[in-house]
Design a protein around this nucleic acid. Structure first.
Lengths: 159, 159
DNA sequence: ATTATTACTGAATATTATTCTGAATTTATA
DNA sequence: TATAAATTCAGAATAATATTCAGTAATAAT
């Protein structure tokens, strides 16, 4: 992974990001009309945004309930010798049900977002996967009752 | 929004979801080869997955740092008269910097994910937006120091 | 000022999406 | 169980789009 120095995105780049964030399957032709440019020019810019790792992925968002993932939970953890050491986090990141792993400031060390079918399978995950990570000292699980908003779109600046 | 009863996804649907989750710009031709089907048949299935709200969006994931969003925070909140009442959550959901709003079990009521440029702009957001929501009684902000993993891909079952 | 680099247009071509017909399969119903 | 209805699919035809490329304009660098 290359370090990205000097990413300078102009107004057109930001507009492209805004469009693709809303619908990644938008055509170059459509974007070109929107931006009043030739499709080839738009394509060139998109390719560059990919190369510069500004766009990191094109993904389809799937309704979790449709694939039987009805339980969402956030887990706060404390870990031993965790200061500056990310091995625990790396282990957590390997677990496929774990969507997010954040190192946080404050009392706890890690905040983890997990999605499973139900509470039984969360329990199984904790028994089978979390318990293997010996550096974890304590955990506190917060079950989500209802998700009111869940977006990944970023607020893209004007300039 | 139509309620989705009886979503029955077969092996092929799940395979399509797996492919599009990895890369939403994959062509029907490519998927068709992978699945050993005609492109037209794949297209038909994709359209149905969209209609059934199984696929909810095609989106480009953008590197937050590239658009000057370097601060990520989780905020736990308590609210008054919140039992069964989602008005506070709805108000929170309107704020564009708020990516997620979850109603949670436990001591607190809401868990909110927010992304801003820096701590100053988070402060500004709290002053300008959160403070307007009078039902919020207390908040606890957790700053993310580093994100080790952040994916939206779901673990799609075999069958 | 001159050169080098970058960004763009527009045309040509390659690839893909989309539509449609008919066949095969599955499901529902009598 | 036989029949009808609905669904799913393949394959061909067509429409739309992606991609490449050469040349030009604009910008930046020396």
């Amino acid at each position: 992974m290359i370090i990205e120095n000097n990413i300078s995105l102009d107004k057109i780049d930001l507009a492209i990001l805004r469009l693709m964030q809303e619908n990644s399957r938008i055509s170059n032709v459509h974007m070109a009309k929107e931006l009043e440019m030739a499709p080839s020019a738009v394509l060139e810019r998109v390719k560059k945004l990919e190369q510069k790792n500004v766009i990191t992925q094109y993904t389809a968002r799937i309704n979790p309930a449709a694939v039987d993932l009805k339980l969402l939970a956030f887990i706060s953890m404390k870990a031993s010798h965790s200061i500056g050491c990310t091995t625990t986090a790396t282990e957590l990141a390997k677990i496929k049900e774990v969507q997010e792993v954040h190192i946080i400031a404050g009392d706890d060390c890690y905040l983890v977002k997990v999605r499973t079918a139900d509470s039984a399978s969360l329990m199984a995950l904790m028994r089978d996967s979390f318990s293997k990570i010996t550096t974890i000292q304590s955990i506190r699980t917060t079950i989500v009752l209802e998700t009111v908003k869940e977006e990944i779109q970023l607020v893209i600046p004007e300039k």
